[in-house]
């Protein structure tokens, strides 16, 4: 019997190794798997490369992981926000490496990894600082930049409902990077609000097919933290 559910947060993040590349879902705190990140902090892996749209908000979730000194490098599109003080001070102190990627290129590079592509040509960023030194091509009257896939060893994502095969649905705009990150990691770990019986999710409404998910864990309570 296939059963991808694990009983505890501790088990869910087991095996994340030092130096791993870890994608973390979420746009700001919407869709950020705060409990999985807390479990990762507790687990202790360090020297991580993190892929996320942002670089942490306030002092919780991703910001707490940064604050704990576990992150060597972050790949993101929008690190600087009104409440990104943890990242800001690490960056200014030269204690974290930043790879800044336009948001759509971040998304499509993640998709390229999940889809098994070798690279993609994107028009976004052509002629800007963020394409400096990169190969370009003129295709059908338009200029494109060659960008490579972003793959991960692990993805930590937040979904709404899941079943033991790993099929997932999401809630509102908390979906954001979850489905594409799930496809781009060797091991995708999903935290869900609810685990339902096989067959209970409407097959027409499954957003992430279980093939892209390796572990899922149910979160007991709606976190107060995600309301921040």
């Amino acid at each position: 019997m296939i059963n991808k559910t694990v009983a505890t947060l501790e088990e869910s993040v087991a095996g994340i190794f030092d130096g791993a590349t870890v994608m973390i879902g979420g746009f700001g705190t919407a869709g950020q798997p705060a409990e999985l990140i807390d479990a990762l902090i507790h687990q202790g892996a360090r020297d991580l490369t993190i892929v996320n749209n942002n670089a942490g908000n306030g002092d919780i979730g991703l910001a707490a992981l940064l604050k704990a000194g576990r992150v060597r490098k972050i790949i993101c599109s929008f690190p600087r926000q009104s409440d990104s003080h943890v990242f800001d001070s690490l960056y200014r102190a030269g204690q974290i490496e930043l790879e800044l990627v336009p948001q759509g290129n971040l998304a499509v590079r993640i998709q390229a990894a999940g889809a098994g592509l070798g690279a993609i040509f994107t028009p976004t960023g052509f002629g800007t600082l963020l394409a400096e030194g990169k190969e370009t091509r003129h295709i059908d009257g338009k200029d494109y930049v060659l960008e490579y896939p972003i793959k991960a060893d692990f993805a930590l994502i937040k979904a709404h409902k899941g079943d033991r095969w790993g099929n997932l649905t999401y809630r509102k705009a908390a979906r954001n990077f979850g489905p594409i990150m799930a496809m781009a990691a060797d091991c995708t770990i999903a935290q869900v609000n609810q685990i339902v019986s096989l067959g209970e999710l409407d097959p027409e409404s499954v957003v992430t097919p279980g093939i892209f998910v390796q572990r899922l864990v149910r979160i007991q309570h709606q976190p107060a933290a995600s309301a921040a």
């Binding site: 929008f78 926000q81 990242f87 930043l98 990627v101 336009p102 759509g104 028009p123 976004t124 800007t128």
Partner: peptide, 16 residues
């Protein structure tokens, strides 16, 4: 030099 760059979706919107 001391600015922390952030680009978000601006480049995609601009050209798309």
């Amino acid at each position: 030099p001391d600015a922390i760059p952030a680009v978000g979706g601006a480049m995609d919107l601009a050209i798309g």
